[in-house]
Design a protein around this nucleic acid. Structure first.
Length: 316
DNA sequence: GTGTGTTTAGGAAAGG
DNA sequence: CCTTTCCTAAACACAC
């Protein structure tokens, strides 16, 4: 057990990348999205290391939010005053830390940016379209982004239809993406839900858009209790990373399921936060009904844009 | 001015 | 060794 003082984990930099920290924060929220300030707060609450040099790491974190396609920006509703937008996880980011290391992803989640006037000004739309046209060969990390589209859109497009298609089509694309492994870090009881549909459904709800009935009912039935970190954890975090490496076996043909349930196990004495202690294995199953729903649109969509490429390959 | 968001750039480190 | 990912710094724009 870490003791207060020198040997405490508090003094050390947590073995998480900014991406994983941010994902943790987002996933810990009931709405699956957080404003920047709350992401800061989450990290500082749980990792005392980040209570210092805030300017440095927060700049890095903002850079990560903007730069990485796995994060999408959700505009605030008019009735939700506050600074900045909400940040959510891209539905297709899947399990970026499948290799068990939260310092370094197995592969970057990268979308192919294509000029599209209607997309850029709306992150969700943008994300949706980007998804449909993502590249399977994320090369250099600077190469993927093309110029910014035109700021106008929304005029005749109709946002709802896009949200719907995004929700139904942008999610699984006919392939199983097991939920973001970060779930296990934050201790979500993660059963029977895929990572992608839900956040967006939540986002749609947040934005005041009606949700497709099937998705909506799924949300209610599958995630009835959407848990949340109740309080800041003590300054410690579970040991993992190196320790869990090797527990995973990536089987490209087997839909990237972890060979074992999420190995990230907090130390039992970190009992102050259930979500960090009573973790449920990250093994999940796709809701068949929604999977079927999603499969339809997206497969066609992706294949239309990128030949016969299967989105599942994106992560492998 | 401050907070937020985007972008470029360079270097360190990990991984193959 | 080479490539990819991560970290950091910094400039800049924008909104409040």
């Amino acid at each position: 057990m870490p003791r207060p003082g020198k040997n405490s984990y508090s003094d050390q930099k947590p073995p998480y990348s900014y991406i994983s920290l941010t994902a943790m924060a987002i996933q810990s929220s009931t709405e699956k999205m957080l404003p920047l300030s709350d992401i800061y707060k989450f990290i500082m609450d749980r990792f005392p290391y980040y209570r210092e040099n805030t300017q440095r790491w927060q700049n890095s974190l903002r850079h990560n939010l903007s730069f990485n396609d796995c994060f999408i920006k959700i505009p605030r509703r008019p009735d939700q005053p506050g600074k900045g937008s909400f940040w959510a996880l891209h539905p297709d980011c899947g399990d970026m830390f499948e290799n068990g290391s939260f310092l370094r992803r197995r592969k970057r989640f990268k979308l192919l940016r294509v000029e599209h006037s209607a997309c850029k000004s709306n992150p969700v739309l943008h994300s949706y379209h980007s998804h449909a046209q993502h590249a399977l060969h994320p090369s250099h990390h600077h190469s993927g982004k093309l110029g910014v589209g035109h700021p106008e859109y929304l005029g005749s497009m109709g946002r709802l239809s896009h949200f719907q298609s995004y929700t139904l089509g942008g999610g699984q694309s006919g392939s199983f993406k097991h939920p973001f492994a970060i779930e296990s870090l934050i201790g979500r009881d993660y059963k029977g839900v895929m990572a992608s549909g839900l956040p967006i459904a939540s986002v749609m709800h947040h934005l005041g858009y009606p949700m497709p009935a099937q998705l909506g009912s799924m949300v209610n039935s599958v995630w009835p209790h959407v848990g949340m970190l109740s309080e800041p954890v003590s300054s410690d975090y579970p040991p993992f990373n190196v320790a869990v490496k090797g527990l995973y076996h990536h089987h490209p043909g087997s839909q990237s399921m972890p060979a074992v349930p999420m190995p990230i196990k907090p130390t039992p004495t970190l009992g102050t936060v259930p979500s960090l202690t009573g973790m449920t294995p990250g093994v999940t199953q796709l809701c068949p009904r929604t999977a079927a729903l999603m499969e339809r649109d997206a497969t066609a969509l992706v294949e239309e844009k990128s030949g016969s490429l299967h989105p599942a390959l994106l992560q492998s």
